[in-house]
Design a protein around this nucleic acid. Structure first.
Lengths: 184, 184
DNA sequence: CTATGTGAATTTATTCACAGCA
DNA sequence: TGCTGTGAATAAATTCACATAG
């Protein structure tokens, strides 16, 4: 809506979009200190700013990708990161045939150089390596002072609790579908 | 635990795993009609069976993959689908150079043949095509009588409400991390 | 004795209803 | 007049506490 030049939006409109009660919208926002205008609604630009602040997305982050296989390459090509203020600023792999190559304008580096992330102010990492390499990759990332990890390997990784890990399991997302499907 | 030959588990053990109160576990299960044994706990095999039934994962499903690019290839290589009873039984692409090739033992078919899914009893689909092709792919899947769609393209797709769509946005998952990270 | 299953008590979340402000 | 912000009312979820079954 912001891109379409719209200025304001009401709690009712917002509620319709997400199929929710308008009070819910107003109450939730009010917990963060009412940033709407009575009789008008919420200023869209301001609303975006506030929500980004609440979700700690008001500061940009650099991220590193570990593992430039099929999944890693797909991630590098994904257009959506910039919208949230993310910059995938580095890519690493262990395969000598990939190291030194350019993928989507990013030079693939040797995974043994992960330590350099600290100096380069990269505090997020995306793990897209084979299952067996996931834990050791996570360990290296922790040593490199990374603070958040998005893990695509289908396994648990354990890290010190100062580091946040979010693990994605594609198969589990597919497994959510049958519940909503008619029992033919 | 089942694979490790363990027979029973208590609500307390289960609760510890997911960091939750034991009552929560017992109450939740009880809504589906108490399948534990007093003084003993829950029989693991039985518990798995019950939960699969609740989540409608007690019948196997066939799925089709649409789009055999980097992401699609990664999905085909993903080991986790079988565990939930899914079989990725077909793959489709629009690129003549890919059609006819084998990827992970699956023959890539022409996307214009999606109609055949109905006859082949494939009721789930995974969309891994470029953003611009996502909606037309979804339309074709609906015509082919698919009942559930997992959409990896970073865009909304609209379908009749008899079809369930779950859309994944990798960038949004990365965006969840900063909230939990220390504000250095 | 041990651990489930469940009414009752408590806490949390949502919705109502309207005062208050542009 | 229109829509936010918010106390009060309602509804839902969680936890307690204990009777009950193995």
């Amino acid at each position: 809506m912001s891109e379409q030049g719209q200025q304001n939006i009401s709690s009712r409109n917002l509620a319709d979009f997400v199929s929710v009660n308008p009070c819910q919208i107003r109450k939730d926002f009010s917990y963060f200190g009412g940033f709407g205008t009575r009789g008008v609604g919420y200023k869209i630009e301001e609303l975006i700013r506030q929500i980004k602040k609440i979700l700690k997305l008001d500061v940009a982050h650099k991220a590193a990708l570990i593992g430039v296989g099929n999944l890693g390459s797909a991630i590098l090509a994904h257009p959506g990161f910039r919208a949230y203020g993310f910059d995938i600023a580095a890519a690493f792999d262990s395969d000598p045939k990939k190291i030194g190559r350019r993928v989507k304008d990013i030079m693939v580096e040797d995974v043994s150089n992960l330590g350099a992330l600290k100096r380069r102010k990269i505090d997020l990492a995306i793990i897209a390596v084979p299952r067996d390499a996931a834990q050791q990759t996570a360990d290296a990332l922790v040593r490199a002072n990374v603070k958040g990890i998005l893990n695509f390997s289908p396994c648990y990784v354990t890290v010190p609790k100062k580091v946040k890990v979010i693990s994605l399991d594609i198969a589990m997302d597919l497994a959510r579908l049958p519940y909503y499907m008619p029992t033919s």
